[in-house]
């Protein structure tokens, strides 16, 4: 289940078409030696890599997610952000991962933040919008809760913890806070908002802990790639190693699992 919920991610300054193509292949062929495995849900790349991914993933069901809105800081003008969002959507991204303006949020300008999310959502068109709160910069759980509510009310399809560039990334406490916000939002509005913890999740054990949290807080309905994702780059291989361990009985080595 974890594998099908992964947004396989590469967000590095040194990303190149070659790297993205290789990652796209990995997304569709996690471990061919073990038939019957699912593919990951999506791959997550920078805007200029969307066209490359579009070609590389043609014919698969894997979605293309792109970070936009001056990821990871978000420090640019709204018009530049909207332009970026339109570019990635036109280039074929089916999901957009935006960052909120944390500076504005912390200085209390919630209206600005909400409006920005609303406008980005409009620019997304049919594409799903994931709103990154960057909880590591929001510091308190109260802020996390407030930002979650704000994002959901402004039109987020998913709320997401982190960019992966700021520590701490996803932590159990933060994720639980956000899940509770999602639950309360559902109770109030009847809308199911998705959740995506990202950054620092690299082992199957952590993955299962988060799944349990989702099941306990939101229920089985959320245990689908439509409503729950992991943003991760190395989680998939650890899950694969545990699956093979279950089948063969002995512990595995990363030498036997392709990097990308």
């Amino acid at each position: 289940m974890i594998l099908s919920m992964i947004d396989l991610t590469t967000l590095e300054g040194k990303d190149s078409p070659g790297k993205v193509k290789q990652l796209c292949y990995k997304a569709a062929h996690l471990h061919d030696q073990h038939p019957g495995l699912p593919t990951v849900a999506a791959i997550c790349v920078y805007p200029n890599m969307v066209p490359v991914a579009k070609v590389a993933l043609a014919g698969t069901n894997i979605k293309i997610a792109s970070v936009a809105t001056a990821f990871p800081s978000g420090m640019t003008t709204l018009s530049a952000k909207l332009k970026e969002v339109r570019f990635v959507v036109d280039a074929g991204a089916e999901e957009v991962d935006m960052v909120i303006s944390r500076g504005k949020f912390l200085s209390g300008d919630l209206e600005f933040v909400g409006d920005e999310i609303y406008q980005v959502k409009n620019a997304c068109g049919a594409a799903k919008l994931k709103v990154i709160l960057e909880t590591g910069e929001l510091v308190t759980l109260d802020n996390v809760r407030r930002a979650s509510d704000l994002a959901m009310n402004a039109g987020a399809d998913f709320i997401k913890t982190s960019t992966g560039k700021i520590n701490p990334c996803a932590t159990p406490a933060v994720v639980l806070t956000m899940l509770e916000a999602v639950r309360d939002h559902y109770v109030q509005t009847g809308h199911r908002i998705g959740m995506k913890p990202a950054g620092g999740i690299s082992t199957a054990k952590q993955g299962i802990q988060y799944l349990v949290m989702v099941r306990e807080t939101l229920g089985q309905a959320w245990l689908t790639p439509d409503l729950f994702r992991f943003g991760a780059s190395s989680l998939a291989n650890d899950v694969l190693m545990q699956i093979i361990k279950q089948n063969q009985g002995n512990y595995q080595s990363s030498d036997y699992f392709s990097l990308d």
């Binding site: 009985g249 002995n250 512990y251 595995q252 080595s253 990363s254 030498d255 036997y256």
Partner: peptide
Amino acid sequence: EQFSSHMD
């Protein structure tokens, strides 16, 4: 058994 069968 585990010591000798670990792939890593």
